[in-house]
Structure formats: structure tokens, C-alpha cells
Design a protein around this nucleic acid. Structure first.
Length: 561
RNA sequence: UGGGGGAUCGUCUAGUGGUAGGACUACGGACUCUGACUCCGUCAGCGGGGGUUCGAAUCCCUCUCCCCCAGCCA
């Protein structure tokens, strides 16, 4: 945890509930779990759940398990297990135990037998279509299966033979015997086990029957001694089934499921299905494309673990569905990086400036602070020479009154250096500005007595001779509408923002930046927060823009129009 | 029209019978060698209608709107 973590989290209903359970000694030690299915990459929505589970255990002196809900070998892969482990660790959390639902297959099987023997479960030998057809609808009750009253001994025999591999996929299924007329569809004899002759990443070919989510999840919680099983709202309907199984099985503990609203972010999508499509159809560059809301993506984009943890605390935990502005995530990044990112100079769209009164062959080394508010972060030497690059946008020929940057005849301070005056504008044949002739005032060197002369504007710059060419990738929101998935008339990919990635191939960066390791964060002054991409090499540096700085000028500029 | 949830400033979120509070955004200002940061200030809300009560966001009735559920996915 870092010093930018906020100390006092606001109260929410889950914290209140757990506190009560602790105070009334319903539980002695709080145990939570984060239970991903290893069938895809984690996204920012998972971060909310991760943060909640770990925070609750930590606050009450308990522990958290990382449990892979690997009950469906058709979808799950080891590489996702590895990626999930990386992501949770990257966020800064340490799980007390790493668990797998598949570790409990033998116990789960024994409990299934127990239900059968009690007359609480039966083997149904119909196919999926028949079962679906009998389930009823939202308004009509279901009909009982013809196999519902099969004697327990017969079900047991069949179930044992299912395990032994005597039947093909789909031939039989184990169902709980609850109530086909229940208004809650989850209680209409839900499927507990299905046959899948499928290799499992962990159990190999040991099993050809696999428990369903409903049968595996609560019992896994009980086995691990999970006290509070926190999940999202769509499982609220499953709680009666969760409780039914716990009550009818000789489980060693009594976990309780509590549901909260999942995270929604605007201008993106957060469902595995849609994220997969973006990857599979090539709309993005992979699961860790910096535009993706996956943890791998936003990490590559340059987001920090602390900023995400703070974000998760800030948004709170409730049962009401909400949509959080993407900007809230960015603000948390800025808050974090503002404090700890060293400052550097970079020019994205270079315009040549010639300091006419600066010696032709000289280099002056200026000492610039790495952080304006934090001297502990030290200083660095930055070269200045006769020819410079400045940001093209920092010069205007016909500048409005409120434009504080360079204009013909005007003065501006070069950050950390001198005040310069624009004496002459050099244009090409078509009238484009190609260079500026400026003169500098040697008395105004930063840190010297004459430096307190005030000018309105300060701009960043780079020595043309020393600046390093770099590729800079500017990222913007992935979609151009706030709720791309909400449009019922159009496919969400039609709302993709065509300008979500802008590659600047000939940007210039301050010498030294090219040598920084991938993953290093910095602020390019007046431009934004950047991170060295994993594609970067000292010979071909690549920087990703994680977030811009707040830009008051652009607002003023808009108002002027 | 079966069941399960949810509705408080633009956004997120406190408040469970006693002056609706905070954060973010927006806006205004101060500061500034980053139009950043920081600081100060301002605007802004209980889905509708009834009822109970001295007093209702909170309790009761009713209406409306939104989300989830008919996988051998999780």
C-alpha cells in the first residue's frame, strides 16, 4: 500500500453487516474469497470485487482466498489462471490460500451421493431440450421429470456409472429435487452434475462428470470456511439454492452469501463476451491493449495499482446499479501519479525555434527539478542549445488575448530555462510556419536573481540536437458513446471510437527517457502522464499516454469560439 | 402481471422518525516557472401521489420507472 491510499473508507452495507457478525460472534474470523472462473482476463469490474473481498478480510483481521472456480473444463485454461494470479498480485493483494474448486471434486461427489441417498437428488435421463421444455416459464410452473421419483438406489447406481464413464455427454444429469412449481426458477430441480468427457487443466482425465456452479460454489465456500461469500446482484436469485444446499448437506461451516452491484463504466464494455469479441475480431490489439478495460490493458496503459484501489474505495459498495464515469478512474490515476511521477519534457508536435542570440556550438546544461513540490525527488540536467523544439500548439500567429503562450513579438518562459521573445516567424512557400526566430534574455535564467521577472506563460521545450525521437501512443476512450452496450438497435462495435488510438511516430523526448525500463511512469510537463510501453527499447522508445492533465485552456478556447 | 432486486444533487454516495451531509463534476476566485497541483467559494437532490406523526428520505398505502432470472455457463 502506498501513501496515496486513502485512510478512512466510508461505511457500506457489507462492512456494516460483517461488523455486526463479528460483534455478535456469529463469526470469529472473517474469511472471504475472490472466485474467478479461469476463462478470460480480469477487468476493472473484477477489481471492485477483489478490493472488496481483500479489504473486508484485512479490516477485520481475517484472510482471503483466491479460488479458481474451475468447474467447466470446456471454457477454462491454465493461461487464464496464470494471468489472473498476476493481475491480483499486481493490484497489491496477497491471498492466504490459492484454492481450486476442482480440489473438492471428490468431496463434492460424496455430497452428491449424500443428497441422492436422502432422496434430495435424482438422475434425470432426459436430454437438455426436454429438461428445458419442462422447466416452465417465468409465469408458468414447470412440470416434473418422469425420472423424478426414480428410487435413490437406482439414481446412485446411475450416478456412480456416470462417474465411471459409462455414458456419453448429455445422457444423464444429476438434479436436485426441490420444487418444479417454485416461482424462483433456480429452485425448479436445478442441475447439479453433468457429463463432460473433457480434459481438465488440473484434474486431467480423472473426471468425466463436473459439478455445476450452484453445486460447487457454496460447498467450496463451506470447505474453506468462508464466512462471507460476496458476489454480484445477478446471484441474488441463487441464494435460496445456495442456502438449501448448505442446509441439506453435512458441510463443516455455514457461509452466507451477500450480493452487491457490479461496476459499470461509461464509454466501455465490461462483459467477457464483448471483450472477447473486441479481441477476436481484431478491434483491439489483444487482451492487454491499453484501450481495454482489462487489468492487463489498463496496466499497460499506465494505470497504477494504488489508483485502482483508491478508485474502488471511492465508488463505494451498494445494491443499486450505477455507472461510473471513466474520468473518475483517470482522476485517481492523476492523483496518484501527480505525487510520485517524476517530471520530464517531451514535445509531441515539434516546431523549430532558433535562439538567434545563443552561441552556435554551445550546450548549456540546466538543472531541472524532478518534481516541483517534492525536492526529495532530486534534479536532473537538461541540455539547451541554439535550436529547440517547442510544441506547435504553443505558438499562434493571431493569438486571442487570453493566449499566454508564444506569439509574434511576445514573450514566454521556457520551463526551467529563460524567457524568450519571438522576433520573427519563418514560413514556407505555402505560408506554413516552419520555424521561429527568438532571442533569449540571459538574465532570466531559472534560479538566478533576474529570474523573478514575470511573464504570463511557460512552455516546455527540448534541445533539437539532444532530443530523442520516440513513438508516442495517445489513447482515448474506446467507444464514442457513453453506453455502447445499451443500444438495442446497433451492435456495440458500431460505436467504437475510430480515434481511440493516435500514434505519434516522430515525437521528441528528453534524453534519458529512452533508457527507462518498460513500466516506468512519468509526467511530461503540461502534456500528461505517460508510461514506457513494453514494446519500448532504447533505440526505439515507445511511450503510452495514460491520462492527460486537466486542461483548463481547452475549455477557455472552446468558449472563445 | 411469476419471482428476486433497485430508485437521494449532473455522477457516486451517507443518512432507518428530529436542520438532507460528503466526494467528484460544473462554475467563480486565489496562487503558479506545468493554463497542472494546491487553496477558497458557489450552484445543485430525497421518482410520483396519498396517509400516519408535533415532525417523514426514513413508517404505511398506492403508482411509475430501471435491472436480474426460463444454460447440462459462471
Amino acid at each position: 500500500m502506498t501513501d496515496t491510499d486513502r485512510p478512512e473508507p466510508p461505511p457500506h452495507f457489507i462492512r456494516t453487516r460483517i461488523r455486526k457478525d463479528v460483534e455478535t460472534e456469529v463469526v470469529q474470523q472473517v474469511v472471504t474469497r475472490f472466485p474467478p472462473e479461469p476463462n478470460g482476463y480480469l477487468h476493472i469490474g473484477h477489481a471492485k470485487s477483489i478490493a472488496l473481498n481483500f479489504a473486508m478480510a484485512e479490516e477485520f483481521g481475517g484472510r482471503t482466498h483466491l479460488r479458481f472456480d474451475d468447474t467447466n473444463p470446456m471454457k477454462e485454461e491454465q493461461r487464464y489462471v496464470d494471468a489472473i494470479r498476476d493481475d491480483v498480485g499486481w493490484l497489491g493483494y496477497e491471498w492466504a490460500r490459492e484454492c481450486y474448486a476442482s480440489d473438492y471434486f471428490e468431496q463434492l461427489y460424496a455430497w452428491a451421493l449424500h443428497l441422492i441417498d436422502q432422496g434430495l437428488a435424482y438422475v434425470d435421463s432426459q436430454d437438455a431440450d426436454a429438461i428445458r421444455e419442462q422447466r416452465g416459464t417465468l409465469t408458468e410452473p414447470g412440470r416434473e421429470s418422469p425420472y423424478r421419483d426414480r428410487p435413490p438406489a437406482e439414481s446412485r447406481d446411475l450416478f456412480e456409472r456416470m462417474r465411471a464413464g459409462e455414458f456419453p455427454d448429455g445422457a444423464h444429469v444429476l438434479r436436485a429435487k426441490i420444487d418444479m412449481a417454485a416461482p424462483n426458477i433456480n429452485l425448479r430441480d436445478p442441475v447439479l452434475y453433468r457429463i463432460r468427457h473433457q480434459h481438465h487443466a488440473r484434474t486431467g482425465d480423472a473426471w468425466c462428470i463436473y459439478p455445476s456452479y450452484d453445486f460447487a460454489h457454496g460447498q467450496s465456500d463451506a470447505i474453506e470456511g468462508i464466512t462471507h461469500s460476496l458476489c454480484t446482484l445477478e446471484f441474488e436469485d441463487h441464494r435460496p439454492l445456495y442456502d438449501w444446499l448448505i442446509e441439506h448437506l453435512p458441510v463443516p461451516a455455514r457461509p452466507r452469501q451477500i450480493e452487491f452491484a457490479r461496476l459499470n463504466l461509461d464509454f466501455t464494455v465490461l462483459s467477457k463476451r464483448r471483450l472477447s469479441r473486441l479481441v477476436d475480431e481484431g478491434h483491439v490489439d489483444g487482451w492487454d491493449d491499453p484501450r481495454m478495460p482489462t487489468l492487463a490493458g489498463i496496466r499497460r496503459r499506465g494505470f497504477t495499482p494504488a489508483s485502482i484501489r483508491n478508485f474502488c474505495t471511492e465508488i463505494g459498495v451498494t445494491k443499486s446499479e450505477s455507472v461510473i464515469p471513466f474520468g473518475a478512474l483517470e482522476r485517481n490515476l492523476r492523483d496518484d501519479l501527480n505525487v510520485r511521477a517524476p517530471r520530464r519534457l517531451a514535445v509531441l508536435n515539434p516546431l523549430k525555434v532558433i535562439l538567434t542570440n545563443f552561441p552556435d556550438d554551445e550546450t548549456e546544461w540546466l538543472e531541472l527539478p524532478n518534481h516541483p513540490q517534492n525536492p526529495d525527488m532530486g534534479t536532473r540536467e537538461v541540455p539547451l542549445s541554439r535550436e529547440l523544439w517547442i510544441e506547435a500548439g504553443d505558438f499562434m500567429i493571431d493569438a486571442p488575448k487570453k493566449f499566454f503562450r508564444l506569439k509574434p513579438g511576445g514573450e514566454v518562459r521556457l520551463r526551467g530555462a529563460f524567457i524568450v521573445r519571438c522576433d520573427e516567424v519563418v514560413k514556407d512557400d505555402s505560408g506554413n510556419v516552419v520555424a521561429l526566430h527568438c532571442s533569449f534574455d540571459p538574465d532570466t535564467r531559472s534560479g538566478q536573481p533576474g529570474a523573478d521577472r514575470k511573464v504570463k506563460g511557460t512552455i516546455h521545450w527540448l534541445s533539437a540536437e539532444h532530443a530523442v525521437r520516440a513513438e508516442v501512443r495517445l489513447y482515448d476512450r474506446l467507444f464514442s458513446v457513453p453506453h455502447p452496450a445499451a443500444d438495442k438497435d446497433r451492435d456495440f462495435v458500431e460505436h467504437l471510437n475510430p480515434d481511440s488510438l493516435q500514434v505519434v511516430s516522430d515525437a521528441r523526448i528528453e534524453p534519458g527517457v529512452e533508457a527507462m525500463a518498460p513500466g516506468t511512469h512519468m509526467q511530461f510537463e503540461r502534456t500528461g502522464y505517460f508510461v514506457v510501453d513494453r514494446d519500448s527499447t532504447p533505440d526505439a522508445p515507445v511511450l503510452n499516454r495514460a491520462a492527460t492533465l486537466r486542461d483548463t485552456w481547452s475549455k477557455i478556447e472552446k468558449q472563445l469560439r
